[in-house]
């Protein structure tokens, strides 16, 4: 592969040197640009030149998940058909009552389901893209959760996509409390020798407060993370103690970010009341009836009896073909 682009004399070399230094300077400038400008540039590139690659990954993810869960969906479809057939009147009544009471307006934060896309490129660790954006009501700092607990929070939002960081991001901080409300503190990530060893550290616990191993730690609703009650993890062991002053505890995170493919984003506009979702992640049984200000949300359920085990977040309802939908509502 012989060179076909040969420099011509001293003036050519000088021009090339100037050009090289110019691009180097431009690269250094990019490096030190304010974060907002950097985000603007990267967002523009992702939504134009790189959009086909992101679309490809999203499509493949969807296909893979559909293929893997086809049998499960078939079973759910059969079960749903039976349930719909037996609860047709209840469903109609429920729809009418919800409309009358305008529960939709009183529901507060809502859950938006999203697919996770990880670019896998160098420097994008701890970040992931979601296929929801401002069009879906997503805002910066909205919590990203799964059935097991908190995954992270939204960092940037575009019209149809958003960029989120998981708890292993160096900038991640969340105000938490123990499930019994005994202790409050701030959780931050601590890096291990390998990514698999990354853990969370609960800081700022008073020295005279001792936390038992396995105790759940949930968001306290302070800071940008609202609502409260989202499980962050469980107390693992004592990490550090400053005599007479404070203690720090290792926390076993509720979720390993790498295993997440689908998430829910808890959205809620500014000025809306802080909501309480402790019951979704609590080990305690659900009360017989939820308080009026915290109505159940579509797609969330605690299982058949609602009295044992971890909460279950059901997928969005499947669009049934008319021939298979006995309710006749579609």
């Amino acid at each position: 592969m012989a060179s076909f682009d040969v420099e011509n004399g001293e003036s050519g070399r000088r021009r090339e040197l100037t050009l090289s230094l110019g691009f180097l300077l431009l690269a250094v400038t990019l490096f030190v640009l304010p974060v907002q400008l950097q985000q603007g540039i990267s967002g523009a590139l992702r939504s134009t030149v790189l959009a086909p690659f992101l679309w490809t990954q999203e499509s493949l993810n969807q296909t893979r998940i559909r293929a893997a869960e086809i049998n499960q969906l078939q079973a759910r479809l059969d079960s749903t058909s039976a349930v719909l057939a037996s609860q047709r009147t209840l469903l109609i009544e429920n729809v009418q009552l919800r409309g009358l009471l305008e529960l939709r307006e009183r529901a507060g934060p809502t859950f938006v389901s999203a697919s996770v896309i990880r670019s896998g490129t160098r420097g994008s660790e701890s970040m992931f893209l979601l296929d929801v954006g401002t069009q879906d009501g997503v805002q910066v700092n909205d919590p990203v959760v799964v059935a097991e607990g908190l995954v992270g929070s939204i960092r940037e939002v575009g019209p149809g996509t958003s960029l989120a960081m998981d708890w292993s991001h160096p900038d991640f901080r969340v105000h938490v409390m123990t499930a019994d409300g005994e202790a409050f503190g701030v959780v931050e990530p601590r890096f291990g020798a390998f990514r698999e060893e990354d853990r969370l550290l609960l800081n700022g616990i008073p020295f005279n407060t001792s936390l038992a191993e396995g105790m759940p730690v949930i968001t306290s609703g302070l800071g940008p993370f609202n609502p409260r009650g989202i499980e962050v993890g469980r107390i693992l062991s004592l990490a550090e103690a400053e005599a007479g002053w404070r203690r720090g505890y290792w926390i076993q995170p509720a979720i390993q970010p790498g295993s997440v493919t689908h998430v829910l984003v808890i959205t809620g506009g500014e000025g809306e009341p802080v909501s309480e979702w402790t019951h979704l992640w609590s080990d305690e049984p659900l009360p017989d009836s939820l308080p009026a200000e915290d109505p159940p949300v579509d797609g969330l359920d605690r299982g058949a009896d609602g009295d044992e085990g971890a909460p279950v977040i059901l997928p969005p309802p499947v669009d049934l073909p008319d021939s298979l939908d006995p309710s006749g509502l579609r």
Binding site: V35, Q38, I41, L45, R46, R122
Partner: peptide, 12 residues
């Protein structure tokens, strides 16, 4: 620049 579009931690 294309590679950095996915790199928020060390853009540039």
């Amino acid at each position: 620049l294309l590679e950095d579009a996915f790199s928020i931690l060390a853009f540039g």
